[in-house]
């Protein structure tokens, strides 16, 4: 089975103080740590699990700056066979469509039975890249995948829907799956594999390798911190009543 997995290097912002830079279109990144996008780390693990079960090879692709090669090297250390960086610097600025179009241009010439992506990137949150690649390739796709099994050239997938519902689908291969976090348990890279990965080649492709024009469909106008809405409510009653009201509010806000 030939598997392609798209991964992205992103700044870790979940617990960080995020500030908008003077351009107003990006965040200040000099005090942030970078890592593989969370959902992509699950996509990578799923790719390696599929390879372990059905054989074949895994190709990891990242459209990113030179530093994205660190992320690709992690993919190699975890079990990817090939790594390919597409030079982001040749294409910026990027929106979801343009990113997908570039990835499509590369993937279409590769062998693949399964393409995996994360279901969302934690930096721009577009959730577009996976489905657009699939549409451009003319293959089926499923998003928010929480289970993935392959049987006789078909994939059995479970998707996570709103309201706690799950959806089971049978999909013909080749297909693309945008996986949800939690679908598996991403592995560590061993020191042995890290040493091996250090010697592997990371292929780079740039603007000259893409045929035709690639254009964005949207333009990022402004990035900003939403104005703070001040709302305070003081709960009264017994401890039990207060607790109950609090739980209710937390539920209503969708925090639970």
């Amino acid at each position: 089975m030939e598997i392609v997995v798209c991964i992205k290097r992103v700044p870790q912002t979940a617990e960080a103080e995020v500030k908008v830079d003077p351009s107003g279109r990006d965040i200040v990144k000099d005090r942030l740590t970078f890592d593989i996008n969370e959902a992509d780390s699950y996509a990578l693990e799923q790719a390696i699990l599929l390879k372990e079960k059905y054989g074949g090879s895994v190709t990891a692709i990242s459209l990113g700056p030179a530093e994205a090669e660190d992320t690709l090297r992690i993919a190699l250390a975890k079990g990817a066979d090939n790594a390919l960086r597409i030079k982001e610097e040749d294409f910026t600025p990027l929106d979801g469509y343009k990113t997908a179009l570039i990835l499509y241009n590369i993937i279409k010439d590769l062998k693949y039975n399964v393409i995996l992506t994360g279901c969302i990137a934690t930096d721009d949150g577009y959730s577009q890249v996976g489905p657009i690649i699939a549409e451009l390739l003319g293959i089926p796709h499923a998003t928010l995948v929480t289970e993935l099994e392959i049987k006789d050239e078909k994939a059995e997938v479970v998707r996570e829907l709103e309201g706690g519902l799950l959806e089971r689908l049978e999909i013909n291969l080749p297909a693309l799956f945008a996986v949800q976090t939690g679908i598996n348990e991403p592995r560590y890279a061993s020191l042995l594999a890290i040493r091996r990965a250090a010697k592997k080649e990371i292929k780079t492709l740039g603007g000259a390798d893409i045929q035709g024009e690639v254009k964005s469909l949207s333009v990022l106008e402004k990035l900003y911190v939403p104005p703070v809405e001040r709302r305070a409510e003081i709960l009264s009653g017994s401890m039990d009543e207060i607790s109950e009201k609090l739980v209710q509010i937390i539920k209503e806000k969708g925090l639970l």
């Binding site: 870790q12 960080a16 942030l32 740590t33 992690i74 250390a77 560590y188 890279a189």
Partner: peptide, 14 residues
């Protein structure tokens, strides 16, 4: 290589 416990990654991040 990002191969260490998540709880500690969060500390390094902060």
């Amino acid at each position: 290589f990002g191969s260490y416990p998540e709880t500690l990654k969060s500390v390094v991040q902060k």
